[in-house]
């Protein structure tokens, strides 16, 4: 993830947010979280999930960086099956970007593999392994200027940044 150091923003002459912007952003986040985790949890995730990313996308999985759809493929190729349960999410349009980048923050549970039932038979009841982990995932979604858009669409967005940690 070799990215240049922070530089000054292009300009901060962006128009202030209006109600409709927030509404569209909120709805996009809703739609995105649904699509994304459904794709992650599906049997065909190796085909579906990389489509959310582009070559320039940066990923961080529990402190481990990778890059682009290929980096994601490497990551999920060796990942057990998952079942995500989104418990909260929030979304903010990032000031100074137009159409705005979206900051999407998701908090929830994720079960890996076979869950508690996959533990060995004599596992003590107090064992946490196998049980759902709490996760926190921060995305930046940005417009893909090269994508073909449908009527009514402002733009097609992709994941430019994806930063995940287990948090419980």
């Amino acid at each position: 993830m070799a990215a240049p150091a922070p530089t000054k923003p292009a300009s901060s002459t962006a128009t202030p947010l209006v109600r409709q912007d927030i509404e569209i952003a909120t709805r996009a986040a809703d739609h995105f979280t649904r699509l994304y985790y459904a794709a992650y949890d599906s049997d065909t995730r190796l085909a579906d999930l990389p489509k959310f990313y582009r070559e320039s996308s940066s990923l961080l999985w529990n402190g481990r960086p990778s890059q682009g759809p290929d980096g994601l493929t490497q990551l999920i190729k060796n990942m057990p099956s998952t079942k995500h349960d989104v418990q909260s999410f929030d979304c903010q349009p990032v000031p100074g970007t137009s159409p705005p980048s979206l900051l999407v923050i998701v908090s929830g549970n994720v079960t890996y593999g076979r869950g508690p039932s996959g533990n060995p038979p004599n596992t003590p009841a107090k064992t946490v392994e196998g049980h759902p982990r709490a996760f926190s995932q921060t995305f930046m979604l940005v417009p893909d200027s090269s994508a073909v858009i449908k009527p009514g669409e402002v733009a097609k967005y992709y994941v430019s940044t994806d930063s995940l940690r287990f948090v419980g």
Partner: peptide, 24 residues
Amino acid sequence: TQIGFTTETDIGQQQSVVPKPSAT
């Protein structure tokens, strides 16, 4: 008016078979 995601039309429409998640 809304934001689209490039993948929508493709999701689940994959023709080629990909390995299911199997890592432990």
